[in-house]
């Protein structure tokens, strides 16, 4: 309970003392992989903050993308500030990527899917980085994204991967749409839909997490959508894993719908169109307890809605699911 109070107090102070003098600014930052990128920041009283006020949700209702710093703790979060708007210190790298990639997620949701932030109604998008020490995870906690630094062996800071950041934000979208129960097949659909979104934004391969996973080993990843078997995950209903671990294998059996997405997107030659169908299916045609079979029906329904049931897309989609044994 300490943390929200701290933030509220600080935010109130900021608004009271500096509010009217805030200006949107464009800085440059160095990411986890050492690359340079342009980031949207806010200038208040001569100091730059990792607050992005450039999105539609800001004009609509004053919502920003805010990136905070756990400073390797697990409770209090602090503002990121910089004097010259060149975010190039080592500790800033995770924040730069978390901020930049969250911006890309907002843009994709808004421009390509017509969704205003994860809730569809302009909710601010907050991220906390440097969570705990050596923490090999990143997750949506129901109200914000929380990102660990990784231990340097298994992971680099996890927000250094666009597909992972996109994946986690999409869990928030799922919460506000189909609201999949995170268990069994509906849980695996939750994971798979999040992977599909990740691979649509980070579209240079079909791997998930390759940019931050095992820095000492090139070319490996957490999962593959084109070949789930490469990481021990099933890619066909014949290989469905029945287990009680991992909420019923939600990170394992996701391989099956993942492969269906891969099949579909590659057969029509567009991840964007495939994602649009996946999103409409999620929003309009699936309930919390949807099974793989329901997902097939729902994506076909969304495809019919968007492109017609006599379209090539519709046929390709049916084939994509059939190929993984979801009939």
């Amino acid at each position: 309970m300490k943390k929200p109070l701290l933030l509220t107090l600080a935010a109130t102070l900021a608004v009271t003392l500096l509010g009217s003098t805030a200006h949107a600014a464009t800085g440059t930052g160095t990411g986890v992989l050492g690359d340079t990128k342009s980031i949207n920041t806010t200038l208040k009283s001569g100091t730059y903050y990792l607050e992005d006020q450039t999105k539609y949700m800001y004009t609509q209702k004053g919502s920003s993308i805010n990136t905070y710093n756990y400073r390797n703790g697990i409770s209090a979060q602090y503002f990121w500030t910089d004097a010259d708007n060149v975010w190039n210190t080592t500790t800033q790298r995770a924040a730069v990527d978390a901020h930049y990639y969250t911006g890309l997620v907002y843009d994709y949701l808004y421009n390509k899917l017509g969704r205003n932030s994860y809730d569809g109604n302009g909710a601010p998008m907050n991220v906390g980085v440097h969570y705990s020490t050596n923490y090999n995870n990143i997750f949506w906690n129901g109200s914000q994204l929380i990102c660990g630094d990784g231990d340097g062996v298994t992971f680099r800071p996890l927000c250094g991967a666009l597909d992972i950041v996109a994946h986690e934000w999409f869990h928030a979208v799922i919460d506000y749409t189909a609201g999949f129960v995170y268990n069994g097949q509906s849980g695996a659909l939750s994971e798979s839909w999040a992977d599909a979104f990740g691979a649509t934004l980070d579209n240079n391969d079909w791997l998930i997490g390759e940019d931050v996973y095992t820095p000492a080993t090139a070319g490996d990843a957490v999962r593959s959508m084109s070949n789930p078997n490469a990481y021990g995950d099933p890619d066909h209903m014949d290989e469905y894993v029945t287990t009680t671990a991992d909420n019923g294998g939600v990170h394992t059996n996701s391989g099956i719908p993942n492969k269906a997405f891969y099949n579909f997107a590659t057969s029509i030659g567009s991840r964007d169109i495939a994602m649009k169908i996946w999103y409409i299916a999620l929003r309009d045609y699936m309930t919390s307890t949807a099974t793989f079979h329901d997902a097939r029906l729902a994506t076909l329904a969304a495809c019919a809605q968007l492109y017609g049931s006599s379209s090539t897309y519709y046929t390709r989609l049916a084939e994509a699911w059939t190929a993984v044994g979801v009939l």
Partner: peptide
Amino acid sequence: ATLVLSSLVASAFAVNAGAAPDKQVLKD
């Protein structure tokens, strides 16, 4: 059961395809 299902799916939700088919009930 799944084979029966798959034959129905082809026409499921064919909302944009001219005349809608008669009511179909899909079961698991």
